[in-house]
Write a protein that binds this DNA or RNA. Structure first.
Lengths: 130, 130
DNA sequence: CTGTATCCTATTCGATACTG
DNA sequence: CAGTATCGAATAGGATACAG
């Protein structure tokens, strides 16, 4: 029916699952929290110290989402005061290689981004004479 | 001064560039637009059709940011009506492998995320009897 | 120590209308 | 065709106070 070489596949339809995955990581803290757990089990307070500027609300919220998505396991030790440990699940571990690669990309290429921004901003400078 | 094995390195400080990179891709459309350009040069309208539910505003805004960051090259053909083509730069191309890998991850593991969510939501069901 | 609850702000995004 | 401008809704996120 449709012409043979008319249009390429629609990303928004065919890659629906991919988009849902992008939604998972498209926020300020998720990737950083996963990264904070790559070295093993961590207590709530330890994670918080590692990510210095995360608020209590966002850390808890991010950990809950990661738990719900099956990336993180939450272990409560019912002591007083309570101790709660978080660790990556096997599923969560599968994300680590990708994050390491993106980190490596940053090391290799981020300076080019900074350079590109400087060039762009200079070329599109607002007042110039001002 | 500080105790030797006191704390692990602070992510928010030491991985500052990494965080800036995460900020680049932490939005609804950036990755999808890059992906739409992986197959080569595309005109504005073509990209828009490939990502069916993106608004004009967000497509333009995303393309401008990608251009500023050096990932995308914008080529204007001053005809009437105007034709504008977008293509990835060499720097932009370096992102494609990572995105393909994340797409492969989606294929391999996203069903586990869905399963984890079902389990979690069932275990934390609100009313149950309701 | 590990959260929850509330309020408030800032940002993101979409819809709509308009332009060269 | 490829934008720009404006407005408003929705969401994300931060500060603070409080609790088991």
């Amino acid at each position: 029916m449709t012409p043979p070489s008319a249009v390429k596949p629609d990303i928004s339809v065919t890659e629906c699952a991919y988009r849902r995955v992008l939604e998972i990581i498209s926020n300020k803290w998720t990737v950083l929290v996963i990264f904070a757990l790559e070295s093993g089990t961590n207590r709530y307070g330890e994670i918080r110290r590692r990510i210095a500027d995360i608020s209590q609300k966002m850390l808890t919220q991010t950990l809950r989402q990661l738990e719900r998505d099956g990336f993180v396991k939450r272990n409560v030790h019912p002591s007083i005061p309570p101790a709660v440990e978080y660790e990556l699940t096997p599923l969560g571990e599968t994300l680590i290689p990708h994050m390491r690669q993106m980190k490596q990309w940053t090391t290799d290429y981020y300076s080019q981004v900074e350079q590109a921004r400087r060039s762009y901003d200079e070329a599109h400078a607002p007042g110039q004479t001002k």
